[in-house]
Design a binder for these strands. Sequence first.
RNA 1: GGCGCUAUCGUCUAAGGGUUAGGACGGAGCCCUCUCAAGGCUCAAAUACGGGUUCGAAUCCCGUUAGCGCUACCA
Length: 483
Amino acid sequence: MSSMPRVRFAPSPTGYLHIGSARTFIFNWLYARRHGGTMILRIDDTDAGRNTQDSEDSIFDGLRWLGLDWDEQYRQSERLDLHTAKALAIFEQGHAYRDFTPQEDAAEKAHATGASTWLCNPEMRELSREESDRRAAAGEPFVLRFRVPREPVREVGFEDEVYGAQSKSTADIEDFALLRSNGLPTYHMASCADDADLGITHIIRGQDHLTNTFKHVLIFEALGVAAARFAHLPLLIAPDGSKLSKRKHGPVVSVTTYRDAGFLPQAYVNFLCLLGWNPKDDREKMSIEEITAIFGFEGINRSNAVVNFSDEDPIDPKALWLNSQHLYALPVETLAALLEPWAAAAGWTPEPGQLLQIAPLIQERMKTFADFAAVADFFFVEPLPPYDAAELIPQKGAAAMAALVLERAKQTLAQTEFTHDALEQALRAAAAEIGVKAGQMFQPVRVAVCGRKVAPPLFETLAVLGRALTLARLDRALELVRS
RNA sequence: GGCGCUAUCGUCUAAGGGUUAGGACGGAGCCCUCUCAAGGCUCAAAUACGGGUUCGAAUCCCGUUAGCGCUACCA
């Protein structure tokens, strides 16, 4: 009987929610939800100097926007006693020692060893317990270092759920710090103590921690606890192959960018999932429920994934397409409701029910909500923004034809029922009567009513706009074409 | 420098000894059509390089190259 998995996402609050972090959260979340396990959010705020409340808030905001939740929450800084106690336990077991080398000298000595890797300072590693205690009692500052097994050297290994069997010689692992000279635990110490204490069963995190894992295995051993299972995720990288960084790549790495760009959270989650994971069939557009149903480590690949943005366009084209697919699949009622804040942002106040009428006309003409204002303006703006009178002139026609068509349209529309079928029938008949092609009839009307040639289908649009507004705009177009 | 990881169309990826190396985005073209979209169809586009193993290698092994990561009293 295996117990339910317990997984955690452990961000350090030093900036906004990074898309790579969001993806790590999602993969943890998927694993937990797939297996009926527990999702834990742990704020790794042991680096007091760099943590900010703003950052923490933006992480929460980002996760909430993505529609993600968690079952337990901890703050690492509130668990310092635990970390220190565990570090001391390791020390008492003889798996760690005090290093009294002043911080300034340490770097120098590490460099002095030349090209080869700094492993330890034998002088400190071999210090007798008596002397160590004496100097500590005298108040001399020290860092507590893990005593990596050296004689004999041995292999440290673990089985990664994604990368397979991993092993590394202790000859290549330095005596890393557990406690800083100010008494605070390092990341390695705090993280392992918490993972052990919280009963984390699967540590799912970025591949940048793959080599750190050997140290963590050593810590778990020294703590006398069974290590969690590990699953490392390929990293998200920039088109030039470099790691995505806030400093270098700016807004591209922030989840809020996609929210503000009018993405649907479920679409962005879908996009993130497809970076480094695939369902093994040809599905692309998937709901998070569908993904949860089949998520597993087998589907995760091992090479880093490029987020395909450019200087001209910070949005990955595939993310955009995926968003459009989710958008097109929305029920119109849902779409209409989601449009409200975007209408408000554009300064428009839709009539009750108006968005519901408009939604189906523009649904397949938006990639994101950011397109809404440009696509739907003529439904709300009166009078229309100025447009070039030349736009009113039909294909293979002249200004005279424009005037003729518009005049005839005006007469026709003054007495036609404003429904799709009636409008189409009447306008086609009108075109035939004055001897122009249907397109030569429709285009000037479209421009008169929408202010441009590119717009939703004409009859639906007219039906929504209504007779009064349509006739008023036709009048204005006539003035324009005659002047 | 040391150690670790990775390498399939421009990008995301499938194929894990036998396929014309598949799909998707993006690009090009055609169809549909009242414009624009959406949709349908077609085309161009990849196994980093070199050695093995094997009847047969994208796939297994070795090397090279490249990229990434770790190498802090950051996380």
